[in-house]
Amino acid sequence: MTWFSNLYQHAIVKKAIMAVSGLFFFGWLAGHLLGNLKVFQGADKFNAYAEFLRTMGTPLLPESGVLWLVRGLLTAAIILHIWSATSLTLLNRRARTSDYEKRQGLQLDYAARTMRWSGYLVAFYIVYHLMHLTWGNVHHDFIPGDPYANLVSGFQVVPIALVYIGANILLGFHLYHGLWSLFQSLGLAHPAYNPWRRHFAITFSIVMSLGFISIPVAVLTGVIS
């Protein structure tokens, strides 16, 4: 622990931790999207997938063992990600206490500039998403054990579907800057693959964002019912 706390006081290490935890979110999100898209295969397949998440790893591991392991890792990653971001933000505030009358943005893109805000909003969205479709305490008609029905009845409420669509657009922006940025933070740069870092970040974030948005849109348009 002393080893870790000694390392953790350095800004570049914090940034590397943000990159590694971010990388973990990307992998998890890809799996989450792949699983959720089964909603297009109908209630049986989707609910069977939800059941698989609980039974995965049995009988070697206890029921829900893998699920709770992943949940634990995600929680740890989120805590480290937000903790590092907060501490770096405070460092940056201290680094310029009297600001310019005017400072022009030159290569600063929208995603990079709004990283902090998209981060806050995505964090709120995650909590809301859990309360809505995992715990069900903000869902108007939650049926434990029937995720397909909960998803469809949840997204049939137009304002809720719009919140999901908006949040996933923001998530796309956050992913785009994060995915490109983590290469830099981990020291992965070479003229041979530098252009591909951008292409990869753009493609991945668009696929993720549109993939998740497709689900509430499908419910609203009646493709899924």
């Binding site: 570049i12 943005g105 990079a112 500039r113």
Partner: peptide, 9 residues
């Protein structure tokens, strides 16, 4: 000094 957010400014 601050920390790098890869803004490229």
């Amino acid at each position: 000094f601050g920390s790098c957010s890869n803004f490229r400014e």
